[in-house]
Design a protein around this nucleic acid. Structure first.
Lengths: 254, 254
DNA sequence: ACCTGAACACCGTTCAAGT
DNA sequence: ACCTGAACACCGTTCAAGT
């Protein structure tokens, strides 16, 4: 501790996969994926670009590792194991079961569980905007190759505890995951164009004004909803979309 | 075919923004965004890389132009103008109005209109997988700067003709657009990993088998829905998700 | 076992020079 | 007005050489 007067010695601070991934996440958060460079990374780690390749195979593996690290954290906050485990035989009715020995959190209704996981992902993507594209690309990988399939599993378990026919599980879970990734990614993109220092209320007001000034013939709808964007809460809006989908689960088609 | 003996003459085939964008779309479709290169593009157009910059400012403008061209086609097939125009005063009730002089297609219910636009986008993204990421990034742009806001408008108009409170329009439209882009992008990514020559049934069977072989403790849900992926139709599945959201629109929360 | 740093084969983009 | 092609400042990645 007190010996930390000199800058870190190589021996005390050797390169490691963890340090590399950590620095990568920092660069990603600060500058976005386009600016994550092996040379920039090497400089930050006080080494040469070649050294990184001893610990990481290539850039895409580095991106995967960064994604895994961040998402694993996010999913750890939300409970990975839901109230009701999937029983492979029959559609599960969502009669609240006896409290299970939940690992991290108190037991919740599946609906609240979905909200919790969704919000955890929303916040993670908000804090790390580059996550959205990364996760979307990873969803088609086989489980075990990345965290993205874990998200699918995590949402799906809660869906299986909903009172919905088993035949709808896949559709519902897919819809939820797509919505979550899409909406969270959008929010992150907005935040990015906004910039870190800017005023949110002012930004919303500006967009609302711009929407209201659109050509009535070309953009009647966008004009009509301009008011709604002016004073909406991002997370509330996001959760409203989740509820919309969940409401559709048991509803009969009109 | 048989006429393709000489290479095209310069004077008869001058460079133009249109030709460049067309060639870019071809490269994008064939090799993906990573392989769209000004040098490859120049070679395909029998010119130097510098020449392209006379017609296009930079790569991101080229990508935008390619996206615009492809999406404009897709939205032209689906009706851009819906049965019921947005009236800014009151929530519109979806009593079928008198047939309007629809520009391209016969009048439809808003629900069918949404399905049509969604399916057109699904097919476009299926044919041009690089579209998904491009559109997601463009959604946060102001209308007029890209086609993405037109998609929002196009879906939104139909939403406004649904029997839903006006206060929900923004949420519903956002949810739909996010789902459409997310699900279509996912499908395109799957098709990409599948490859052009492979057998779809065999591919689905392989994934289903892989899912069924997962650890029951870690992936109970994914295992449980493995059957459902085996013989599902992509477009049907996609539309089921749309219907799910639409069903949620008027449903009361449970 | 781990790190260095030069080198290779690329990129997007610019720009003097041509027609 | 439009095109050429060399050049600049980057990239990811490799690899002989060091410790």
């Amino acid at each position: 501790m007190a010996t930390r007067t000199r800058r870190p010695e190589r021996r005390e601070n050797p390169l490691s996969r963890e340090r590399i991934v950590g620095a990568a996440v920092e660069l990603l958060d600060a500058d976005g994926e386009g600016r994550l460079t092996f040379r920039a990374l090497a400089e930050r780690l006080a080494t040469g670009p070649g050294a990184i390749y001893w610990h990481v195979a290539n850039k895409s593996e580095l991106l995967d590792a960064a994604t895994d690290a961040v998402v694993a954290d996010a999913l750890a906050v939300a409970p990975a194991t839901p109230v009701t485990p999937v029983t492979s035989a029959m559609p599960v009715t969502s009669v609240a079961p006896a409290m299970s020995a939940a690992s991290t959190t108190t037991a919740e209704s599946p609906r609240d569980g979905i909200r919790a996981v969704a919000l955890a992902l929303f916040d993670a993507i908000d804090a790390h905007p580059w996550l959205a594209a990364q996760l979307a690309a990873q969803l088609s990988r086989s489980p075990g190759q990345s965290v993205a399939p874990r998200i699918f599993e995590s949402i799906g378990r809660q869906v299986s505890a909903l009172e919905a026919p088993k035949s709808s599980w896949f559709t519902v879970t897919s819809a939820l995951v797509h919505y979550i990734l899409g909406a969270a990614g959008q929010n992150a993109a907005n935040g990015r164009t906004l910039g870190p220092g800017a005023d949110r209320g002012e930004f919303l007001d500006t967009t609302a004004r711009a929407w209201e000034a659109l050509d009535p013939d070309d953009y009647p709808f966008t004009r009509a909803v301009a008011v709604q964007i002016r004073d909406h809460d991002d997370r509330e809006q996001f959760l409203a979309g989740i509820d919309l989908i969940l409401n559709g689960v048991a509803a009969k088609p009109s």
